[in-house]
Design a binder for these strands. Structure first.
Length: 938
RNA sequence: GCUCGAGUGGUGGAAUUGGUAGACACGUUGGACUUAAAAUCCAAUGACCAUUGCGGUCGUGCGGGUUCAAGUCCCGCCUCGAGUACCA
């Protein structure tokens, strides 16, 4: 008879909800602990068993910390702006808010069944105006900030304005656009207001600029770099092209160094940190300026190898480089134009898949080498990317493999500047102890020495300077979508202005259609009325736009990552109408102590959120500049798909064992219709897909056998396991423990429904141990020392495992303990009480029930966690393996208190030792107290 | 190509960080209970040899090395996974 998990789980879930058991206190004198999950995007498909894994792990820690006396903040909410709801709206006309609402309700139902200890009173949605008004507010703070590189800090824009009006751009070290003009104070003061505003855009942390963006025509929007994977959109896999557009951009690049450094102080998985480091892509080198011969122009390049300057035999510009048109000679113009056009028409993907082909064209122009004064030809090649560095390189064929191949292909001379090295077949790329030759004043120096000497010289003659280059680009922030946060900006004479702060939120307007307008404006262009809050809600009709009193609003919306870049702060004070978060709450809750989520967000959410946090920190709004002390990436739970095989071109389906030598294609079968022995149920197959009724099946032993294969869990692969079904069949406590038991949290692992019986059996066993004929029954006898030892060993192991985040082994420890208790028929009250608390983080429902039956007042959630008593763990005897030359021969039971010498003597005195030695001499005896005795002889 | 990470029974995975490899669980086999099944309980389960002995030999991807002792440390490979890619 199974334990009544259904009634138990219902009872305690409603108890927790009614009593708000898991709401933390504020203020509180207790130490705080903040456990956070990456909040979900509520998709239409609902949850599968893979989704809750991270939530279960964080819930164990949250409950554990409550027992340990912490005031625990463990919230949950929804990242509810996003593409799928919008795509659905485009197809069906249903407002995304409605789709989202439905999906959230479904998510909530599913989550509630698993018994999480979330404080639901703090729930919010990023698509709710009461939340996104603060996302808009943060946008305003970014707009009103600039980056002072002198002190490495973002500052209010007013300070910059003061500086400009007093000193102009003199003594100003700001992170700004490359092409920002320098102004004297009087020039600045002479500018009209609009001109000043335009000028300030060069400095603002979020700015409007025309730039090359990743445009995805199918999605009808631009994408950030991290949303483009292998030249196609991450979502949908559509082609992406480069396009010049005026967009809102976030100046994340000025934080490159701090984002990099900050990684050292936080406990995040090393691979993830590595991904962020690569993404930021710091490289140390120098910029060098080459004068263009007979033109009034310079080409600036970035190089990591200033030591190889004398090896430069040509230069290469990206086809998009601004100087191409100017410097191309008339003879070369046709070829150059054709080449530029060609590369422009090639999609990102073509260009990438075609890396091996060397293409390029000579411009006819020459540059003057800044050191040697020689003329070097200027070429164009699409191996040089417009988006990195300056979009131009100095080519050193002897020291760079691509330059080398380019030179060989076009027959450009190669100068060898390395002493005693053969470079006839390949470039010499390693740095090492190589000495430089053929390089005037660099001759005889090592690479490192030459690098420094060359930079010093360049700086002296004013032709270059040391520079650290980052791969990290500023992030495009505009999306041509409907379902996102409106950007709180209006345009006056084409100049962007923030709407007044007291008018927030600027509410997402209703539209007839979710597609771009006929004039090509984003979907918000379809809106005829906008609402914003100014005392009472005020509606602005688009008809009233006269550009005198009423101005047009920004029609782009924010990207998906906006709302998720600061939400961890909002949980501290989710209902606050006056501030984004109250300061003393920020001070109390501080950093997230444990953050759990997938590693797929490495270069997206996890980078942008660190960026925003740093800006908010600089501006004095948050007390810490990193927001998550420890991050754990939970691995994916994979599905075990099932396949049967269709003979190609027929309606004949084969059992998996019969496909040898046949021409077949695998067909997914829903895993629900396949049993543990991989037998497919015919009946259900017919009900599922009527067309199988007309098919013929070739069977093995009268059965249709499916082949299993591990794949990502997804609806289209028919391998989804719904947690609801598991809760129905086995209960939430079993689901929780089984998900943890599957393997280490960080690892990807397949879901195997067959294995669940082990955990289910464990909980039943635990229940039965304290029940007789369905009646609760505990013994009041004192437990034996053996049982106490078992209990305390488990306490020690489980506590240690939770600290180490090794939850799968903690589950095993419970199983061992219950097996031992069962074998000894030990159902003592003194054992059950601590065990109930110990197990509560893992299987909270059953534990609450037993706790109540023990006569305690629910809930047990703040009951102190048991502590292992070393008294009970003490060994009286220890079994020592006695080994000879590392090979074990026999064991010896010795007093646990025995000293090293006593152990050694006992081992040597044993007659079996004498037998084994048999005349051999003892060379050494190694004794490790509590572990082993090894006798080395020979 | 580069950068990380990982290779342990039929399977998922343990191993206090150099100290009796294979915990725990699934699966499999046998047994008990049952008219039968389910459920439950007990036993066996790395391989090979011996099982009329207690045992022995080999075993953590492959090849070397250090050590009394290596899954664990070092050197050289192989395979798989993840990330990234003309980054100057």
């Amino acid at each position: 008879m199974a334990y009544p998990f259904r009634s138990i789980e219902n009872k305690w879930q409603s108890f927790w909800a009614t009593n708000r058991t898991f709401s933390p206190n504020f203020p509180s004198t207790k130490p705080k602990y903040y456990v956070l999950d990456m909040f979900p995007y509520p998709s239409g498909a609902g949850l599968h068993v893979g989704h809750p894994l991270g939530y279960i792990a964080s819930d164990v820690v949250a409950r554990f910390k409550r027992h340990k006396g912490f005031n625990v903040l463990h919230p949950q909410g929804y990242d509810s702006f996003g593409l799928p709801a919008e795509q659905y709206a485009i197809q069906t006309g249903q407002h995304p808010a409605k789709t989202t609402e439905t999906n959230i309700n479904r998510y909530r139902e599913q989550l509630d069944r698993i018994g999480f200890s979330f404080d639901w009173s703090r729930e919010f949605r990023t698509s709710d105006p009461s939340y996104y008004r603060w996302t808009q507010w943060i946008f305003m703070q970014l707009f009103n900030a600039w980056y002072d590189a002198k002190v490495d800090q973002a500052k209010p824009i007013d300070e910059l304005i003061d500086h400009l009006s007093q000193h102009g751009s003199k003594n100003l070290d700001a992170d700004c656009d490359e092409n920002t003009p320098s102004l004297a104070a009087h020039q600045w003061n002479a500018l009209s207001n609009d001109e000043q505003q335009t000028h300030l855009l060069h400095y603002r942390m979020t700015y409007l600029a025309e730039s090359e963006v990743n445009w995805c025509p199918q999605l009808g929007t631009v994408l950030a770099n991290d949303e483009v994977v292998n030249g196609v959109s991450e979502r949908g896999g559509y082609a992406v092209e480069r396009k010049k557009m005026t967009q809102w951009i976030m100046r994340i690049s000025c934080y490159a160094e701090r984002l990099l450094k900050g990684l050292d102080g936080i406990d995040w998985p090393e691979p993830l940190k590595e991904m962020q480091r690569n993404w930021i892509g710091r490289s140390v080198g120098a910029t060098v300026r080459f004068q263009v011969s007979s033109h009034d122009a310079e080409i600036e390049v970035f190089t990591t190898r200033p030591d190889t300057l004398f090896g430069v035999t040509f230069m290469t510009l990206a086809p998009e480089h601004a100087l191409v048109d100017m410097i191309t000679t008339d003879e070369q113009r046709n070829m150059v134009n054709r080449y530029v056009e060609q590369s422009a028409n090639r999609s990102e993907r073509d260009r990438m898949s075609d890396v091996k082909n060397i293409t390029g064209v000579f411009t006819g122009a020459y540059a003057i080498h800044p050191l040697s004064g020689e003329k070097v030809p200027i070429w164009i090649g699409d191996y040089v990317l417009a988006g990195y560095g300056t979009g131009a390189v100095m080519a050193v064929p002897c020291g760079d493999q691509r330059d080398f191949e380019f030179a060989k292909h076009f027959d450009i001379p190669i100068t060898n500047i390395f002493a005693d090295l053969d470079i006839s077949n390949a470039a010499h790329v390693e740095k090492g102890e190589t000495r430089i030759a053929n390089s005037d004043f660099l001759n005889g120096l090592t690479v490192a020495e030459a690098t420094q000497t060359a930079i010093d010289y360049l700086e002296k003659i004013g032709s270059g300077k040391a520079k650290i280059q980052y791969r990290l680009r500023d992030a495009v922030f505009s999306r041509q979508r409907y379902w996102g946060e409106p950007i709180p900006v209006y345009f006056k004479n084409g100049i962007p202005h923030l709407i007044p702060e007291h008018c927030l939120p600027l509410t997402l307007p209703q539209v007839e259609k979710y597609l771009p307008t006929e004039t090509g404006d984003p979907p918000l262009g379809n809106a005829t009325e906008w609402a914003w809050h100014e005392a009472d809600e005020k509606v602005i009709s688009v008809d009233l736009i006269d550009n005198k009193e009423v101005f047009p609003l920004e029609l782009n919306t924010m990207p998906g990552w906006a709302g998720s870049s600061w939400y961890f702060n909002r949980y501290m004070d989710p209902k606050n109408q006056n501030e984004f978060v109250q300061k003393d709450k920020l001070d109390y809750w501080g950093m997230v102590d444990l953050y759990i989520g997938g590693s797929e967000h490495a270069t997206g959410h996890l980078l942008y959120s660190r960026f925003w946090q740093k800006v908010l920190f600089d501006l004095g709004y948050v007390p810490v500049d990193e927001y998550a002390q420890k991050l754990v990436n939970q691995g994916m739970i994979l599905g075990e798909s099932a396949f049967i095989y269709r003979k190609t071109g027929t309606q004949t389906y084969l059992s998996a064992g019969l496909i040898q030598g046949q021409n077949v294609e695998p067909i997914h079968v829903d895993v629900a219709y396949v049993d543990a022995n991989n037998v497919v149920s015919h009946e259900e197959l017919h009900n599922w897909r009527p067309e199988f009724g007309e098919a013929t099946f070739e069977l093995e032993d009268g059965q249709l056998i499916a082949k299993r294969e591990v794949e990502k869990m997804s609806k289209s692969k028919y391998n989804v396991v719904n947690p609801d079904d598991i809760c129905d069949q086995y209960g939430a406590d079993t689901l929780r423990m089984y998900e943890l038991f599957l393997g280490p949290i960080e690892q990807a692992k397949p879901w195997n429904t067959a294995g669940i019986s082990g955990v289910y059996g464990f909980l039943n066993k635990f229940w039965r141990l304290f029940h007789e004929n369905e009646q609760f029954s505990v013994s009041d006898q004192p437990p034996s020392s053996g049982m106490l030892k078992s209990l305390h060993a488990t306490i020690e192991k489980v506590t240690h495992d939770i600290d180490q985040f090794s939850l799968n082994t903690a589950v095993s420890a419970f199983m061992i303990c219950v097996n031992e208790l069962t074998a000894a028929k030990c159902n003592h009250r003194a054992i059950l009480k601590p065990l109930t608390v110990l197990l509560a983080p893992f299987a909270p429902h059953i534990c609450e029930e037993l706790w109540e039956k023990l006569g305690h007042t629910p809930s047990l959630s703040n009951e102190p966690y048991p502590i292992a008593d070393p008294m009970h763990l003490k060994e009286t005897q220890i079994t020592y393996p006695i080994s000879f030359n590392g090979k074990m021969r026999f064991t010896l039971d010795l007093d646990a208190e025995a000293t090293k010498d006593e152990i050694e003597q006992a081992a040597l005195a044993d007659e079996r030792t004498a037998q084994y030695l048999d005349g051999k001499t003892i060379r050494k005896v190694i004794v490790v107290p509590g572990k082993i005795v090894n006798i080395v002889c020979g």
